[in-house]
Design a protein around this nucleic acid. Sequence first.
DNA 1: CTGAAAGCGCTAACAT
DNA 2: ATGTTAGCGCTTTCAG
Lengths: 341, 341
Amino acid sequence: MPPTLDDVARRAGVHKGTASRALNAATRSQVNGETAKRVLAAARALGYTPNAMARALRTARTQTVGILLPDLTNPLFPPIVRGVEDVLGRHGYTALLANTDNSPDKARTAFDALLARQVDGFIVATARREDPVVRDALAAGLRVVLVNRTTEKGHVSAVAGDDTAGISQVVDHLVGLGHRHIGHVAGPEATSTGMERRFAFEQAMRRHRLTLGPHAIVEAGGYSEIDGATAARHLFDADPQTTAVVAANDLIALGVLQVLTERGRACPLDVSVVGYNDMPFLDKLATPLTSVRIPHYELGAQSAQLLLDQLGPLPHQPRTILLPSQLIVRSSTAPPNGTRQ
Amino acid sequence: MPPTLDDVARRAGVHKGTASRALNAATRSQVNGETAKRVLAAARALGYTPNAMARALRTARTQTVGILLPDLTNPLFPPIVRGVEDVLGRHGYTALLANTDNSPDKARTAFDALLARQVDGFIVATARREDPVVRDALAAGLRVVLVNRTTEKGHVSAVAGDDTAGISQVVDHLVGLGHRHIGHVAGPEATSTGMERRFAFEQAMRRHRLTLGPHAIVEAGGYSEIDGATAARHLFDADPQTTAVVAANDLIALGVLQVLTERGRACPLDVSVVGYNDMPFLDKLATPLTSVRIPHYELGAQSAQLLLDQLGPLPHQPRTILLPSQLIVRSSTAPPNGTRQ
DNA sequence: CTGAAAGCGCTAACAT
DNA sequence: ATGTTAGCGCTTTCAG
């Protein structure tokens, strides 16, 4: 029903091969200027749009990339996706999304589904440090860019926030306020963000010559508010003298705040809390949360650009790009209680 | 490189036609049980996945649907998208997203891009009441389902929240608290949600025999916080005795709260405020916002189901489904100031 | 029940 | 500079 290349060619009085060349910017030079003009006019008149499926079948490139996400409803990811889509769209590419709900099984299924659709490459936001899907994709020679989370550095292109710098700023801020007993609710060690923020925390504490009690770091089961609350209970039970908590992300920080409330302790009066990611509306909370801003849109945009580069003709080295983080101080952090007088 | 149907057929010692029939659940009955088993085994052994492009080219169905969204970073949409994707995925379909940033131009571009990719149908969350894209899509016989926003009812399938019931509950609640001077910051009249919530507001006020001053309703330029703030300034300037404001959505309500703060008036002490949509984290705000919950995930899921129905063989009437809304009372609403004593 | 063959719409190698 | 041809991988008639 929709007009085909043959229709356009017929209307322009040329062969469809010529029409194809005229329509394609890269091959247009092979065609007489007048003829090209006639073909373009015919195409416009008929409202011709090339059939992407036919083209894909012929060229073995779909101009489509797959995005593997943990969960689109986590406010962290929409800006990343927008960044990816905006850059991709500018180059005629489209993104296919898949949510994995943090399940390796679903990740595998989603990956296979995307592969069946012949995506040209993958942007992966679900990576675990040891990730079978990423490993297999790489082994199969597929183009992959990691975003936000990474696996081991170097093997594969990745764009992430600079967690070491971010956490370092957080600890400096807290120490500057006078805190000495600082705890950390870490993210899952299976993720690079969990491990690196934890490592950066230990490093920063050491730099300030602050001792870490054996229970100063508790690993949350996941990145949700409820995971954060569970971990925070352990932390406060084991280390009641804690005056500040660095959370691995904002949702976990919300869980920490919740536990504070349920125990009748005030933030920041009794305990200061810091989140990570600076998700939307943090400034409007009952306790406006101090957090670390990561340029998420930019993360997405740059990862898309990196993938586009890899899709190009010239071979490309894997690159890791670290984007700067920025501490946003709000009122969930203040000098420790004992300091006031 | 990846195995093709021919490879599978060869390994099973049959013709590719037979292999195709064996692999396809719908045509499997046409094939000898033993043969089918052999083909399946061969496919598994080779790790065969059908090439979706080739299939699409042949069948003229891509098993892909396009979703037109205003903006994925608006917290309203991710749950809708998840609902759509979960249902679609269960039926072997995939969704292609496009953000229009509320621009009719971008909507057109995105629509064309989706069409070029031969999507089987559209889920449209960007509809204006008079929407050229929707009109053209319908005229071209494309399958379309509207979600959240509608055009005129009846012509096209749609799934939306029950705004009349929702706003009605809001007004009942406010009147029950003792409010008489209630204002409304409406959404853009060009959108069904803007118009219907406004109409429902007028209706509910009339039902309570409350008069509406000429400035009791102000239309916001859009659904953002800043649009809400601008409109709220007009409203409070024109109607200073207003004790309660019904906002057309949560972001607008946030803008109203901001204006209250900048004018040194307290919520809910001086003015009660109600949002709409019950977006995430409203309960954690400095002023926990009373709002109307819409089952957004369900909205997405049902719209996907409706589209799937339309894609099926039997002809389908356009249907409009209204999902129930639920008032969530939090502390941004209280009796009017004068009532306390 | 299975094989043969055509063809979806396009691009690219080859021929003119 | 343009026309011709083959074929991407699949489904689906049509024969047998």
